[in-house]
Design a protein around this nucleic acid. Structure first.
Length: 139
DNA sequence: GCCAACGTTGGC
DNA sequence: GCCAACGTTGGC
């Protein structure tokens, strides 16, 4: 199973709002970048992803689960982009900050470190395990 | 089809 | 608030 990382500015869509959306989840719209789109298209139902707060927090705060695969984004007037549905799976015991990620040698190849502007990113199995460990979760 | 200019993102 | 990095746009 692949793992992912989804970025959002807390001021536009926060982890708290994701949790409040509950088990039925919400659509993850607004992606307007082709690399991000390709990642969205590769997602499968049941796969997990990190929820990352950009700007204010700069930290991974929770884990989401993909509950619906890629379909057209009705908010994209060009019709080129799509979205998936996600739900909050669980919060991390403690957030893992960008500074901590950058300081961890095992995460030096993370997309978050190398291409911070990409809003939907793949996360390798090894990186996934390291971040969970840093969050105080059992791998 | 190339590439310069511009806009946006996001870390600092 | 600044600015670097990147993606997109548009003129040629």
């Amino acid at each position: 199973m692949a793992h992912w990382l989804l970025k959002s500015e807390p001021s536009s869509w926060s982890w708290d709002q994701q949790v409040a959306a509950g088990a039925k989840g919400t659509f993850w719209n607004g992606v307007r970048n082709h690399s991000a789109k390709l990642n969205l298209m590769a997602m499968k139902k049941g796969e997990k992803g990190f929820f990352y707060h950009s700007n204010e927090d700069k930290a991974i705060v929770g884990i989401i689960e993909i509950i619906k695969t890629y379909y057209p984004d009705h908010t994209d007037e060009t019709g080129k982009f799509g979205m998936v549905d996600v739900k909050a799976a669980k919060p991390l015991k403690r957030p893992v900050t960008l500074a901590e990620i950058k300081a961890e040698p095992r995460l030096k190849d993370m997309v978050l470190v190398n291409n911070s502007r990409l809003s939907v990113q793949p996360v390798s199995d090894a990186e996934w395990a390291v971040v969970l460990e840093m969050a105080g979760e059992k791998a």
